[in-house]
Deep mutational scan, measured.
Amino acid sequence: SFNTVDEWLEAIKMGQYKESFANAGFTSFDVVSQMMMEDILRVGVTLAGHQKKILNSIQVMRAQMN
């Protein structure tokens, strides 16, 4: 498990989005775990492969939080 959203993004090789997530207010796992595709688009993730990777990881995160 990760301590910060930045660490999580690095771990899934999506570190290039750290600033975008932070600027959009997605700075805690409570918020990130609620993200939908529209949120991912809003933070500027436009590549389908990256969207899928982030969404898949969020689903895993949700499962671990319950």
Rank of each mutant, 00 (worst) to 15 (best):
S33H: 07
L9M: 04
F29P: 04
A63L: 12
D39G: 03
A24Y: 12
V31Y: 07
A48D: 12
T46A: 08
A63V: 09
V31E: 10
S28A: 07
I12H: 04
V31K: 15
A63I: 10
N23Q: 13
M35H: 01
T4G: 07
M65K: 05
M61S: 03
R62T: 06
E38P: 10
A22G: 06
S57I: 05
Q59N: 12
E7Y: 05
V32K: 00
I40H: 00
E38R: 11
A11D: 11
A11G: 13
S33Y: 10
M65R: 06
W8Q: 00
I40C: 05
K53G: 05
M14D: 00
V43L: 12
K18Y: 05
V45I: 12
M65H: 07
E19N: 12
M14G: 02
K53C: 11
N23Y: 09
N66T: 11
I40Q: 00
A22N: 08
M35W: 03
A11S: 15
Y17I: 02
S28C: 07
D30W: 13
R62I: 09
Q16L: 06
G44C: 03
D39T: 04
Q64L: 11
H50V: 02
S1L: 13
D30N: 11
N66M: 06
S1G: 12
R42Q: 09
N56H: 14
E38N: 08
Y17Q: 01
S28T: 15
I54M: 06
L55E: 05
S57W: 13
I58H: 00
K13G: 15
E10Y: 07
Q59V: 09
F29M: 11
M36V: 15
N3G: 12
M65I: 11
T4Q: 06
N56A: 14
Y17W: 04
T4F: 07
G25V: 02
I54Q: 00
V5Q: 00
I12Y: 03
W8P: 00
G49D: 15
G49V: 14
K52L: 13
Q16S: 06
Q34K: 13
G49A: 15
M61C: 05
M65F: 07
T46D: 07
A11E: 11
F29H: 03
T46G: 05
V32Q: 00
F26W: 09
Q34V: 09
I54F: 05
F2K: 05
E38D: 12
I12R: 02
F21N: 00
Q34F: 07
V45P: 01
F21H: 00
R62A: 10
K18V: 06
L41Y: 10
K53W: 15
T4W: 07
N56T: 13
V45G: 01
Y17L: 02
I54K: 01
K18E: 03
I58S: 01
A22V: 08
R62G: 07
M65W: 06
T27E: 05
K53Y: 15
V45E: 01
I40N: 00
N56M: 14
S20Q: 14
I40L: 15
A11I: 07
G15F: 06
H50T: 02
R42M: 10
F29D: 00
E7C: 07
G44K: 03
D30Q: 13
S57T: 04
G44M: 02
V32F: 02
M36A: 12
S1Q: 14
T4K: 06
R42V: 08
I12Q: 05
V60L: 15
G15L: 05
I54N: 00
A24N: 13
G15W: 06
V43T: 06
G15H: 08
F21P: 01
H50C: 03
D39R: 02
T4H: 06
A24C: 09
K53L: 15
F21T: 01
K13P: 01
D39Y: 03
F2P: 07
M61R: 03
V32D: 01
N23R: 15
K13Q: 14
M35Y: 00
I12D: 02
L55F: 15
Q51Y: 05
D39C: 03
A48I: 13
M65N: 07
W8R: 00
V31N: 08
I58K: 01
R62Q: 07
T27K: 09
K13F: 12
F26K: 05
R62N: 11
M65E: 06
D39E: 05
W8H: 01
H50P: 03
F2T: 06
S1K: 14
D30G: 11
Q16G: 06
M36F: 08
V45W: 01
E38Q: 10
K52M: 14
S33Q: 08
K53D: 09
D39A: 04
M61I: 12
G49M: 14
G15I: 05
E19C: 09
H50M: 04
H50S: 03
S33M: 14
M65P: 05
D6F: 10
V31S: 13
T27G: 06
V45R: 01
G25T: 02
E19R: 12
N66Y: 03
Q51P: 03
L55K: 04
N3D: 11
K52A: 14
Q64A: 13
V5Y: 03
F29L: 14
A63W: 06
S57Q: 09
E19Q: 13
K53A: 15
T4N: 11
V60E: 15
A48K: 13
M35F: 04
T46C: 07
R42D: 06
E10A: 07
L47Q: 12
L47E: 14
D6T: 08
R42K: 11
S28D: 10
K18P: 01
T27P: 02
Q59A: 13
A63H: 14
Q16M: 13
Y17P: 01
F21D: 00
G25I: 02
N3I: 10
A24D: 04
G49C: 13
A24I: 04
A22I: 08
Q34C: 09
M65C: 08
A11L: 07
L9W: 03
L9I: 03
G49P: 13
S1W: 14
D30F: 13
Q51D: 02
V60H: 14
L47D: 15
H50W: 04
M14I: 03
M14Q: 03
F29I: 11
F21V: 01
L41W: 09
W8G: 00
A11K: 08
K18M: 07
D30V: 11
L47R: 11
W8K: 00
R62V: 09
N3M: 12
M36E: 15
Q64W: 08
G49K: 14
A48W: 09
Q59H: 10
S28L: 04
Y17V: 02
E10G: 06
Q64V: 09
T27F: 06
N23V: 12
A22R: 15
V31R: 15
L47M: 10
A63D: 15
L9N: 01
T27R: 11
L9S: 01
S20C: 09
L55S: 04
S57N: 06
G25W: 03
M36C: 11
G15C: 06
I54E: 00
I58C: 04
N23G: 08
L41Q: 11
L9T: 00
M36W: 07
T46R: 10
K18L: 05
V43D: 01
Q64K: 09
R62C: 06
E19M: 14
Q16V: 11
M61L: 14
